[in-house]
């Protein structure tokens, strides 16, 4: 097990190097001259040349890449032209907001998706199954950015039930930073009214963010439950005279959960990517909004930083899912 873990962790390194080659290649194909961008609009040709030499942009491409990789490893992920701060510092500042959003979304997706999937499987081809099918297909088909706008129009503006955007009202001071997630930090500070306020701001974006993961989880649980419910050990359990509830939840569900865990891991990664759109609509100050603003201002270091960070998290999620397999299914041995 430990050996397997070490080997998998070692495999992360070449993939990360590959990822850095990818982001480096993207920054090389940029049509704009990076030296000119960095030197500013009123720079003379000599000044641009100086900047070019300072940043090593006059070196051959492979040397430039090695410098880039060295900087990445040393924690120098470049500087954002807009925020004028180091990219790594910005990422630390914005990441907790994204994590809070995605965790809340996955919580909703899991809590609604799994029961809905079970309901569909135990009522195969009857109306709960058909309904869950329509809901699932609708949910994966929703353009999240549009759905977010519709909810802002109806729930926030029309009914006035929840705030339109942001994380907290302008007048409210955020809780003392522990995790950077306002709902968690306010609970740690035992400030319940602040917790409720931040929760209100979180609900709409988290719900919008959850829909596609919710749909995928529902369909996966349904499919796997149907498969397990048709197997011999379930028939045996029923023949023993066990209560149907016990058969479904104790015997079938546990075995059906294995592929579901993979789907949850994958959806988590996709939600990290999809948060770009949700954050843009709800002005949610996470790394997605950061990447969008950078992309619109031709500020490339931040986009590359977000790409590498999200890629790294995605890899770690896959590893975690593979390890969880062994916990859920003792037949799997790592060697």
């Amino acid at each position: 097990m430990l050996q397997y873990l070490l080997r998998r962790l070692l495999l992360v390194v070449p993939t990360l190097i590959g990822l850095s080659i990818l982001t480096f290649t993207i920054s090389v194909i940029v049509p704009a001259d990076p030296a000119r961008l960095a030197a500013g609009p009123r720079a003379t040709p000599e000044m641009i040349e100086t900047v070019r030499q300072q940043h090593g942009l006059d070196q051959p491409v492979h040397i430039q890449y090695i410098t880039y990789l060295e900087n990445l490893v040393r924690g120098d992920w470049g500087t954002s032209v807009i925020s004028r701060r180091p990219v790594l510092e910005d990422l630390q500042r914005f990441f907790p907001a994204t994590l809070e959003l995605v965790l809340a979304a996955m919580l909703i997706a899991i809590c609604v998706g799994i029961p809905l999937g079970i309901l569909a499987a135990t009522n195969q081809n009857r109306w709960p199954d058909q309904l869950s099918r329509i809901v699932a297909i609708s949910f994966v088909s929703l353009p999240t950015f549009w759905f977010a706008i519709i909810l802002q129009l109806t729930v926030a503006v029309g009914l006035g039930l929840l705030p339109i955007s942001g994380r907290l009202p302008a007048a409210e001071a955020p809780p003392e930073t522990v995790t950077g997630m306002f709902t968690v930090d306010s609970l740690i500070a035992l400030d319940f009214s602040l917790f409720l306020t931040s929760l209100k701001y979180l609900i709409l974006p988290a719900f919008v963010q959850s829909v596609s993961a919710l749909a995928i989880i529902t369909r996966t649980v349904r499919g796997d439950m149907l498969e397990t419910l048709g197997q011999d050990f379930v028939r045996t359990a029923r023949a023993k005279g066990l209560h149907e509830r016990r058969v479904v939840y104790r015997h079938a569900l546990r075995n059906a959960m294995i592929p579901t865990v993979t789907m949850i891991g994958l959806s988590f990664g996709f939600a990290l990517g999809g948060s770009v759109l949700v954050e843009a609509v709800f002005d949610w100050p996470g790394i997605g909004l950061y990447a969008v603003q950078a992309a619109l201002n031709l500020d490339f270091q931040p986009i590359m930083g977000v790409t590498i960070l999200v890629g790294f998290i995605f890899m770690m999620l896959n590893l975690t899912v593979d390890l969880l397999y062994g916990v859920l299914d003792p037949r799997i041995r790592y060697s």
Binding site: L22, V276, A295, V306, T307
Partner: peptide
Amino acid sequence: VPPLILALA
């Protein structure tokens, strides 16, 4: 890398 992030970059 999630498709949307890479495509954005």
